[in-house]
Structures are given as C-alpha cells and as structure tokens.
Design a protein around this nucleic acid. Structure first.
Lengths: 89, 89, 89, 89
DNA sequence: GTGGGTTTGTGGCACC
DNA sequence: GGTGCCACAAACCCAC
C-alpha cells in the first residue's frame, strides 16, 4: 500500500490544485480578451492620428468625459481658486 | 445671405468634429468593454480569495506564466546569483 | 458701511492664500530634493549597468531586501506551491 | 601555487560581488533618504488638510506648476477645441 | 538605443 | 479590521 497513507491529503491537494488551475485559466482568458480590446484601441488612436488628431489630447478628452459634468466643474473651480491664490492667474 | 460666407470653413470644421466624435465614441465603446472584463477579473480573484487562495501570489503566478519558460528560468537564475553575491543565501 | 462687510472676507482670503502658498512651497522644496535623489539613483543604476549588471534584476533584489527574511521565505514558498499546483514545477 | 586553479575565477567573482554589494548599498541609502522625504511630504499634506485645504486639488496644483506656462496653455487650448467639437462646451 | 507616454502593479488612505 | 479607492512608482512600448 504505497500511497495509501497520504491519499486523503493528496486528494484535497489535487482538488485545490484543480480549483486554482480553474481560477488561473479564467483569469488568463479574460486577460486575453482585454489585451485584444487594447489592441483595437491602439488601432483607433492610430487611425485618428493619421487623420491629423492629437492622440495625447484625445486621451485627455476621453478621461474627462468619464467624469460627471458636475464633478468636473467642481474640480475645475476649486483648482481655479487655488491657482488664483498662488498667483497663477 | 443665408449660410454663405462662412460655409466653407464651417463645413470642414463640422466634418472634423464629426470624425473626432466618431473616433472618441469608438474608443469609449472599447473602453467600456475593457472595463467590464476588468470587473470580471476582479470577481474571479475575489472568488479565489474566498476559496482561500492568496490573490497577490496568484497575480505573480499569472505574470510568470506569460513568460517563456526559458526566459523565466534565466531571470530566476540571475536573481539567485545576485542574492548569493549579497549573502542572501 | 459699504466695504466693511467684505473686509473680513478679504483678509481671511489673503490669509488662506498665504497658508496655501506656504504649504505648496514646502511641498515643492521636498519634491525637488526627492527628484534629486531619484536622479542619483538612476546614476547608480546606470553605472551598475555599465559594469555589466542587470538593472531589472538589481531592482528585484533591492525590493526583496526590504522584506523581512521570514516574509520573503513565506512568499516564495507559497508561490512555489502554486506553481507546482499549476504544473510549472 | 596554492589556490591556483580556481583563484582567478573566485577572485573575479568576489570582485563582482563586492561591486554589486556596493551598488546595492548606495541605492538603499538613497532610497532611505527618499522615503524620509516622502514622509515629510505626507505630513505637509496632512497639515494642509487639517487647515481645510483639499489635498487632491493641491496635488493637481503642484503638478501643473511643474509645466511651463506656455506648454500648459497650449495643451489647454487644444483640449478646449476638442471639447467644443464634442459639444462639451 | 534612448526618451516619453501609457499602462500596470503596489502601497497608503479613508471609509465602513 | 477589512475593503475599495487613489496616487505613486516601475515596467513596457513605441516613436524618434
């Protein structure tokens, strides 16, 4: 009975290994899809650049559009106040 | 004088604005999908954590699996050499 | 009493502006020193690279040395276990 | 010829180890100082917060002040154009 | 090959 | 005390 004694332990180890493998594979699948979308995005930016748009500014724009208008306004106002306080007009 | 004088300029401005809008909307669509996948990944990690796995270690694991085995071995070896040089066993 | 009402306001605005300026200047001073140290670090890494050392590995090394030995061992072990579970030996 | 065969190799290994150790120690010294400045900065921000200032906005402010005014203006202008094109006023 | 920009991972912080 | 968020620092990638 060579492996007998450890069978219980081995079984749960195997089980844990399978669960872990499953989690990791799910993650990898999702990462793959994510990377694919990232490639698509780069393509769109590249096309935009080819049309004469400034990519960096476009990225800023996209970032700003994620904020709620109210939130954006609020941040901007406070920043303006602070800039005036510092004499940055 | 309906639209005359400025029409030429306005037309190309309008055209550019439309193109930019199109690019930005395509980007935003892609970002949305990407964010959704990111949320899915967080869920998987969270579920794994609930199963007793260590998320940080899992992340390391996933990162390592992206490397070619040869590359991974090389990095590990070099690190070992450096650690020995520093007396970190 | 036309301007009276605002005088207090102006005074505290000025006071606030001065405080803010003071904070910002202190921060900038500290950031400057920090940046200087960062430059020194880059120099050291660059010199090391010129001596044939691998910078990326050195960074790993430095990071590892920050951890307590026990902590480091623990992380390594757990990663090994996970790698074995995934058949990465 | 006492230590003959391996001496050459060992000597250069030792030499390399010493160089590496030296580099790493220099880095660690610099990192330590850097960390100390980081702590000072957190303190200043914390104090500012206690005085009623918004830390996040202060960080933006400090970031903006690093840019040349001309550069800042340029970026802002282009962004405005794009925002108008997208109807973000 | 080097520098700039983006993205990703990590650590600190506040809120619950 | 733990969880989510935010900012910083490092790694990666591309453009020059």
């Amino acid at each position: 009975m060579p492996d007998g004694a450890k069978v219980g332990g081995k079984r749960s180890e195997t089980f844990a290994a399978e669960r872990l493998t499953s989690f990791v594979e799910r993650i990898e699948k999702l990462e793959e899809e994510r990377a694919s979308l990232g490639a698509d995005m780069r393509e769109v930016y590249s096309e935009a650049k080819g049309s004469g748009f400034d990519v960096k500014t476009m990225r800023q724009l996209v970032r700003l559009r994620k904020l709620e208008p109210a939130e954006r306004a609020e941040q901007t106002e406070l920043l303006d106040i602070y800039m005036q306080a510092l004499g940055m007009a």
